[in-house]
């Protein structure tokens, strides 16, 4: 997924080969991650796709099924992975993820702790940010969930950057061997205030902590707990509004005189003009945008704080 191995980097010379992970794109809201394997087939509503046909094609290619249906094959990125991963828990999406990476000030070489691992959506982006020399240690108290996450990171080629531990961070805190070495900590826990003292012990001075909580009561308690060791405590909510576009064909009409003065037809993209009753008529084509009707109204509050410098 990451360009760290030069032989796997996506370039004009890179073709899809056996064992590659590809994102099969049907529509923007319909994608699937598949490992390319000679002899395997993908079957969906567009027909049967032979993996063998995909080998040797560039990423981003359109491939056909036996019935002439098509899908695109994309190179995986953490953003695409977030859209295709199997949900074992509620996951974080791009708006929160990108904001967290920025505010935690994660750059290559950083040491980052996360709990819980959940479905590994954020973890994948954390790994991209610390690569190639940093590391993400992520903990979940759910054994099976941790194992599935490990399998996923193997699949996406990130296992060198991520270590998944099974541990109850609320109950036991983070392992003490990280003491004073950690650049950033991310908490997505039901009672984050229980893990905050441990995070404070492990962070470097001025290191940043983020806690993600859906409920304001959780934020309230976390902030109270943060006030003892942390400073610069800030809470945000970030959302995304998507727009849909539409090329509208709109009927225009104008008198002979005003047509030459006011709204000039040359502004319009394609005009099919005609005359009727002494008036000029044409269809103007304009691309228009409006917000999509459905949107996420809330994901969670993001609370950031820096460890006080002594």
């Amino acid at each position: 997924m990451l360009p760290i191995d030069p032989s796997k980097k996506i370039t004009f010379q890179r073709w899809i080969s056996e064992g590659d992970l590809v994102i099969v794109y049907e529509k923007h809201d319909h994608m699937k991650a598949i490992k390319v394997c000679c002899g395997s087939v993908l079957q969906n509503r567009f027909g049967v796709f032979e993996h063998t046909d995909w080998i040797g094609k560039p990423f981003g290619s359109k491939v056909l099924s036996n019935k002439g249906g098509f899908v695109y094959l994309l190179a995986p990125t953490p953003e695409l992975w977030t859209l295709v991963l199997s949900h074992r828990t509620q996951i974080l999406y791009i708006a929160d993820i990108s904001f967290v990476i920025s505010f935690l000030e994660i750059v290559p070489g950083c040491l980052v702790l996360e709990s819980g691992t959940g479905s590994g959506s954020l973890t994948t982006s954390l790994a991209r940010a610390v690569a190639p020399s940093g590391h993400v240690y992520t903990f979940d108290f759910h054994e099976q969930r941790a194992a599935s996450a490990r399998e996923d990171f193997e699949k996406t080629g990130l296992s060198n950057l991520i270590t998944v531990g099974v541990r109850d961070i609320q109950g036991e805190g983070f392992p003490e061997n990280f003491c004073g070495l950690v650049d950033s900590v991310f908490l997505d826990l039901p009672q984050p205030w229980l893990a905050i003292p441990s995070a404070g012990k492990l962070l470097k001075q001025d290191g940043v902590l983020c806690s993600f909580s859906p409920c304001i009561e959780q934020v309230q308690r976390s902030c109270e707990s943060l006030r003892t060791n942390f400073t610069d405590i800030r809470t945000f909510e970030v959302l995304l509004r998507s727009y849909e576009i539409h090329e509208g064909k709109m009927e225009c009409s104008a008198d002979d005189e005003s047509g030459s003065l006011g709204s000039s037809p040359c502004k319009k993209r394609q005009c099919s003009s005609g005359r009727r009753n002494g008036k000029e008529k044409w269809d103007a084509r304009t691309v228009m945008a409006r917000p999509c009707s459905e949107a996420k109204g809330h994901t969670g509050y993001l609370t950031f704080a820096r460890l006080k410098c002594l």
Partner: peptide, 21 residues
């Protein structure tokens, strides 16, 4: 291109204080 999307982010900061959030 595919996966085309226009998005507009929205950001709100909170005051979190005991009984004054």
């Amino acid at each position: 291109a595919i996966g085309l999307q226009i998005s507009e982010p929205w950001l709100r900061e909170y005051q979190v204080l005991p009984s004054r959030t």
